[in-house]
């Protein structure tokens, strides 16, 4: 009896102290994701910490910021950063191109499946394959120049990858060709999910193609556009290694025309036997990527808040 009464008191207390549904579910969620989160934290955390430690050492000795000073004053690293920055200019091009293609596909309907696959195909092709094929196409006597000459556009035939003045632009064209499909699919998926009534109302009000998509589609899928933009910005800053490595045979040439920060890190670590300099450069790159991610989350939060306010 005594036991029963104490049990009932405990139950009563328990009922009174029962957390809210939201609180319990977030604790439960934490519990379930904890194992995976710990593994991820260990893998990434360990790597980040060990790179950070290595960036302050030389030959086992603590050297303070010496490695950072060497890297940041290295004209080659600055050139590489500049090229990453220039590649960022491809992001708006990608967004405009992906948006235009997405709304065109949305309006086309007929054969959309085929066009969608055709546009998405480059995105799933392995980068080395793409880079090798374009490396051949862009040779001075390659397929592109043969075509241009055959249609009387001799003046447009260039040494696309051999001329340091245009090599980076050529490389970014390959990146755009490959990456645009990802944006098209993302945006198209979002556009299809939008309520059809809005478009019908716009049409009844007499809105044309561009008016409809710039005033309805664009704001409606803004989050997706921002997400795509940030993903591509991160790609341009820290994910173009494969393109550059294969298309320039690991040199970042001609001259240093296509040198990017990832290649600089790779060469420092594995060709120049300077892992400490590679680590210092990696820390710079990590910070740059982090800035982009923070910017993305801020913009996204503001955009969501804006949507709710509206």
């Amino acid at each position: 009896m005594k036991l029963a009464s104490s049990k009932s008191v405990a139950a009563d207390v328990h009922i009174r102290q029962r957390p809210t549904l939201a609180g319990r579910s977030s604790r439960e969620a934490l519990f379930w994701i904890a194992p995976a989160a710990l593994v991820i934290l260990f893998i990434f955390g360990y790597s980040v910490v060990s790179v950070l430690i290595q960036s302050f050492r030389y030959d086992g000795d603590w050297v303070g910021f010496e490695n950072f000073a060497i890297v940041i004053t290295d004209p080659l690293f600055l050139t590489a950063l500049k090229h990453n920055g220039l590649l960022l200019l491809a992001v708006p091009v990608l967004i405009v191109l992906a948006f235009t293609l997405a709304i065109t596909l949305f309006e086309t309907r007929a054969g959309m499946r085929f066009y969608r696959s055709a546009i998405f195909l480059p995105y799933v092709l392995p980068i080395p394959v793409v880079a090798v094929v374009f490396g051949q196409i862009y040779q001075l006597h390659g397929a592109l120049n043969i075509f241009l000459k055959s249609v009387g556009l001799d003046s447009l035939a260039k040494d696309w990858l051999g001329d340091p003045q245009i090599a980076l632009g050529t490389m970014s064209s390959v990146i755009i060709w490959k990456e645009v499909g990802f944006g098209v699919i993302l945006m198209l998926a979002h556009i299809i999910s939008l309520p059809n009534e809005t478009y019908e109302a716009a049409r009844i009000d007499g809105a044309g193609f561009w008016r409809t998509h710039l005033s309805i589609t664009r704001p409606a899928i803004l989050n997706t556009i921002i997400f795509y933009g940030v993903i591509e910005a991160i790609t341009m800053v820290s994910w173009v290694f494969n393109y550059v490595y294969v298309m320039s045979n690991g040199l970042g040439g001609p001259g240093n025309a296509t040198m990017v920060s990832e290649l600089y890190i790779y060469r420092s670590a594995f060709q120049n036997k300077a892992p400490e300099l590679a680590a210092a450069a990696a820390v710079f790159l990590f910070i740059a990527t982090l800035v982009l991610m923070i910017a993305f989350f801020r913009i996204q939060r503001r955009s969501i808040a804006g949507t709710f306010n509206r």
Partner: peptide
């Protein structure tokens, strides 16, 4: 040094043969 080879020789041979430097 191998790095001098790659960073200076390889690079500048490309540029001289292109007429860029």
């Amino acid at each position: 040094p191998a790095q001098l080879d790659a960073d200076a020789v390889f690079k500048n041979v490309q540029l001289v043969l292109k007429g860029s430097v």
